[in-house]
Design a protein around this nucleic acid. Structure first.
Length: 552
RNA sequence: CUGCCCGUAGCUCAACCGGAUAGAGCACCAGUUUUCUAAACUGGGGGUUACAGGUUCGAUUCCUGUCGGGCAGGCCA
């Protein structure tokens, strides 16, 4: 429809100016219902060029605009906006197209089956997942769903840092726990982890438990001095825990990449050698440095420490080179804002490899930190200190649907306050229930009608008149634009907000109007309308990974 | 001190590439059920968009500065 209006307007623009590019025509969706279905600021833009007032330009355009049976009326408003009101024929065709497309309404194929890789969560296997990881999981998973809905082939990937110092700290902590050293004892490792889960691992290790992890069975040797087994077991134990957390959060990954594998396969070594070969390194203070300042960083970074081991971002670079070599021209990394400094380092490393990788590759979506409030007090999320709110606890307390909704319904780049008591006590006022309730209400009405829902079709000559109906139609017709915009801007929260609005329109309509009426024509029309709203709500909820219940 | 993100109603958050009277929910006040689910709806009060400048037809949005919050600035990850 936007394209249609653009073409219509451009045919006039060509008559009254020498412009040959239709890009100056911008069609908007007005916020206010009385401003019509579409609007354009074209006259304001052209007024300077034509040396006429915007409203005068509007008069001229209006006069020359060819008639269309899809447009009911066009108004000049405000400073010189042109507002378009769709005809009932155009509206009815939208409803019928939703009824035809069903689950496909809102999807598009702008991705053209290109490959995209989305990395998210990527928590270290040193503790259970917490709320922050939950935010990453919710955003990352919704992004993946959005890209799938836009015709991309999505690979969801989880990267495990299973090779750095923090893994040794984990092992030392488990060992100390095996020896019954209290966490506050001076004998306990200074950089150790204090959470209660450490004791669980120690207990399982001593009793020689077997852990299933990604199709492998890892058995603990139970020997306190068997550092290798203890490390393997601890990591497997926590990965297994995380897998269960993610499963409870309805988040699946296609590929798990292990930092350790890039060492094993020699890819870390290859990256180092290549960077030396390309002349981007130098030695200082007994360490090997990468000149990241050549690529926009504010200072150079150590890549090989004096003890011969590598800093964390080198395996990161190796990992991203691997992504590139696997053919992903588009890669999105979703991570916490506390990792933002790695962006410039990883990109610098990739540039240094001289592989014609674009400077802004990969893309990043960073989510800001979460403050968790419980009983009016901030809950500190610290693995080391052991005070800890796990994602699983949250899911158990407020449910998967509500947790997902809360974590994805806000712009990722603003900090978020998660009030546990509110989320818990709010049950009835929770936005997610509000949306689901709208879906359930429609389902119930259609069920009571008892007709063949798949055959519902709207007579194109039918005329919807009430404000509630027109508002609902507008909401339904906007949906595909919301999906493509949310995808383009990597902003899944727009889906959540849209659904709340759409559900509000439905509830208003529901209260204003009865659907199962005597008049067959009116009944079919109204049922067609709410059934198309049902598809929008269901498809939208699906994009958020939230269920659309038939009854509540 | 330096870099990145943020600052919008009492609280939690929206606002499409710069658009029209800055919108929702919670909380507060007043109403709506013998009729498809009241987990709903209708109406009301509540704002100098942190502050000060600038850019232009037009700024919550872009630029500069100030203040405030968060995160980074390890040979930790």
């Amino acid at each position: 429809m936007k394209a249609y209006l653009t073409e219509l307007l451009f045919s006039v623009v060509k008559q009254i100016t020498d412009l040959t590019d239709s890009s100056i025509i911008v069609i908007d969706r007005p916020k206010i219902i009385s401003h019509g279905d579409f609007s354009t600021n074209l006259c304001l833009v052209l007024s300077k060029k034509l040396k006429k007032s915007p409203r005068a330009v509007a008069e001229i355009i209006l006069e020359k605009l060819p008639p269309s049976d899809l447009i009911n009326k066009i108004e000049i408003a405000g400073a010189g906006f042109l507002n378009f009101f769709l005809s009932s024929k155009a509206n009815n065709e939208i409803i019928n197209s939703v009824l035809n497309l069903k689950d496909f309404y809102g999807k598009n194929n702008t991705g053209g089956n290109q490959k995209i890789q989305i990395e998210f969560v990527s928590a270290n296997p040193t503790g259970p997942l917490h709320v922050g990881h939950g935010r990453g999981a919710a955003i990352g998973d919704c992004l993946a769903r959005l890209f799938e809905a836009s015709g991309w082939i999505v690979t969801r990937e989880f990267y495990y840092n299973d090779a750095g110092d923090q893994i040794n700290n984990l092992t030392y902590s488990v060992k100390a726990s095996c020896q019954n050293i209290p966490t506050n004892d001076s004998q306990f490792p200074a950089d150790g982890y204090h959470g209660a889960y450490i004791h669980d691992i120690a207990k399982a290790y001593l009793s020689k438990k077997t852990i299933e992890c990604q199709g492998q069975s890892i058995q603990a040797s139970g020997e306190i001095d068997d550092a290798k087994s203890m490390k393997e077991f601890s990591v497997a134990y926590l990965r297994n825990e995380q897998d269960q957390d993610l499963k409870a959060f309805r988040t699946k990954f296609d590929i798990y990449s292990l930092e350790s594998s890039f060492y094993k396969e020699g890819k870390v070594e290859m990256v180092i050698n290549k960077l030396i070969e390309e002349g981007h390194t130098y030695e200082k203070d007994g360490a090997l440095w990468l000149k990241t300042t050549n690529f926009g960083d504010d200072k150079d970074r150590v890549m090989k420490k004096t003890d011969g081991s590598y800093t964390y971002f080198i395996p990161d670079v190796a990992y991203h080179l691997d992504k590139w070599e696997r053919g992903f021209k588009k890669v999105i990394n979703e991570q916490g804002a506390d990792h933002h400094s790695t962006i410039s380092r990883v990109r610098a490393g990739l540039q240094g490899l001289n592989q014609n990788i674009p400077e802004d590759w990969p893309e990043y979506v960073l989510h800001q930190m979460i403050t968790v409030i419980k009983e009016n007090k901030e809950v500190k999320i610290s693995k080391r200190a052991g005070s800890y709110l796990t994602l699983r606890e949250l899911i158990d307390e407020v449910g998967c649907d509500a947790t997902r909704y809360f974590l994805v319904a806000r712009r990722s780049d603003s900090q978020l306050v998660f009030n546990i008591d509110l989320a818990k006590s709010q049950n009835n006022d929770n936005p997610v229930f509000y949306i689901q309730y709208a879906h359930a209400r429609i389902s119930k009405v259609l069920e009571q009608w008892g007709g063949d829902i798949s055959k519902l079709k709207l007579d194109t000559s039918f005329n919807f008149e009430s404000q509630a109906e027109l508002r609902l139609i507008k909401s339904i017709s906007i949906y595909p634009e919301i999906v493509s915009q949310a995808t383009k801007e990597l902003a899944p929260h727009q889906i959540a907000n849209f659904l709340k609005d759409c559900a509000a329109e439905l509830h208003s309509y529901y209260n204003e109007s009865k659907f199962l009426v005597e008049d067959e024509k009116i009944k079919i029309a109204r049922l067609s309308l709410i059934n198309s709203a049902k598809y929008v709500l269901r498809n939208g909820l699906h994009l958020l990974g939230i269920e659309a219940p038939k009854q509540m």
